[in-house]
Design a protein around this nucleic acid. Structure first.
Lengths: 226, 226
DNA sequence: CACTTTGTTGACCAATCGGTCAAAATCAAG
DNA sequence: CTTGATTTTGACCGATTGGTCAACAAAGTG
């Protein structure tokens, strides 16, 4: 039934790597077509728009990553080792990409999501879904760690969300500074965070607004610019 | 000598708010001119390019923020209270912006930086400088906290960097989910992180590659896509 | 073989893009 | 009021943008 094609796959490849190397807003449909060696007519045969392609490409990428994540977070590993597996793999991947392309890509989901979450709801939604799915791995590992007594009690979902934020923050830092070595201790840092933050810190964390002077001063804290 | 103008200021205002609401790549010089009510000829009288304007606007914004930060991190506050001051102010600002515009902006520096750090070195550099400056406030507070015995010893710069990454990660999360309430406990979380991570966690954090089976499996951990 | 389905091509379009320019308008200082 | 520096304007340019289309090419099917 008709001729076959992998042009759609090549378009997704091109889009993903271009977005990765530059940004979503910086690349055009022409750019993607040029890189994929596909004419624009064919582009519109497969996709409605750049956003439509991006959604498809991100979704496919997530489906490709899933087996890797399943492996890293396999139940055969000790709970915290799973998180470490993932962090170490990410570090190696970032380092390798830097070696090959000169660029530390950071987390593609977080980067693209942060860029276009105010413009394209479809892309935002798919990225939210992917990142939420990823957090589930963390939740599972943290929950198992709690059950094994490695970790104090506490809201698993909240712990996982915060650990994920920490992970993404460190990734963004590495991307911005274009230095994969900032992720060399990614696993140490994240595991340390999860373990340490499970115990209530002994010392009070302040927020006592200790003196009337200070209380008064807080009026000047907020920016009125935006 | 000659006529005066605030068109350059209006252009910076427009650029910053448009970038904030959308993204750097999504807006054009025409967009900025329209919003600022400035003709394109005038744009090129003041600035060489969109990137040139962005650098100027970000630099001005940072200079405007500095007094606020100086106030929040004033030495009259207890060390950890300074960080809490900042986090609370940021939370209020994000909540207020969401109320007014329907959008949680997140950290403009981190968002823009993550977007264009692979494309425009000038913008990347100014954002790096601003964020590095911000980290200095944290370093100072953490150092004071150590001196007062509120915190265990350890590399101050590294602690501040990691706390900053955590902060930025939580901000990015709030932006992506467009939910300022995810930052309601920003101060708690960040302070908790700083305090908790100063003590070496009791339990081993794994990375023992405990069995040959696991060790063998790590071959499949890395993605080969990029 | 013919027929149908599926994919490809390149020409084409209007709109918008970044960028230029000479002329006109405005203002501060002498 | 002049003068000279500064700012504004709007017309203009070529290149590129996203998007369309009818004609064409390749493959599977009967």
């Amino acid at each position: 039934m008709g001729r076959t094609s992998d042009a759609d796959q090549r378009l997704m490849d091109a889009a993903l790597s271009l977005i990765w190397e530059q940004s979503y807003g910086a690349i055009t449909i022409d750019d993607i077509c040029r890189k994929a060696d596909v004419k624009k007519g064919s582009f519109y045969y497969f996709f409605d728009s750049k956003a439509d392609l991006a959604v498809a490409a991100l979704d496919r990428y997530w489906k490709e990553q899933k087996p890797l994540w399943d492996n890293q977070f396999s139940a055969v590993f000790a709970p915290m080792q799973r998180i470490r597996n993932h962090c170490d793999a990410v570090y190696r991947q970032q380092r390798e990409t830097q070696r090959r392309t000169g660029r530390v890509p950071g987390c593609p989901f977080c980067t693209i999501g942060s860029e276009i979450c105010k413009q394209d709801e479809a892309i935002r939604a798919v990225i939210c879904e992917i990142l939420d799915n990823k957090i589930k791995y963390w939740e599972s590992a943290i929950s198992d760690a709690q059950r094994e007594g490695l970790l104090g009690a506490g809201d698993v979902a909240e712990k996982a969300r915060c650990a994920g934020a920490y992970f993404e923050g460190l990734m963004a830092q590495a991307r911005l500074h274009n230095d994969a070595e900032m992720l060399a201790s990614l696993g140490d840092r994240v595991c340390e965070h999860i373990l340490a933050c499970s115990e209530k810190p002994a010392k009070a964390v302040a927020n006592t607004a200790d003196s009337p002077i200070n209380a008064a001063k807080t009026d000047n804290f907020d920016s009125t610019l935006y």
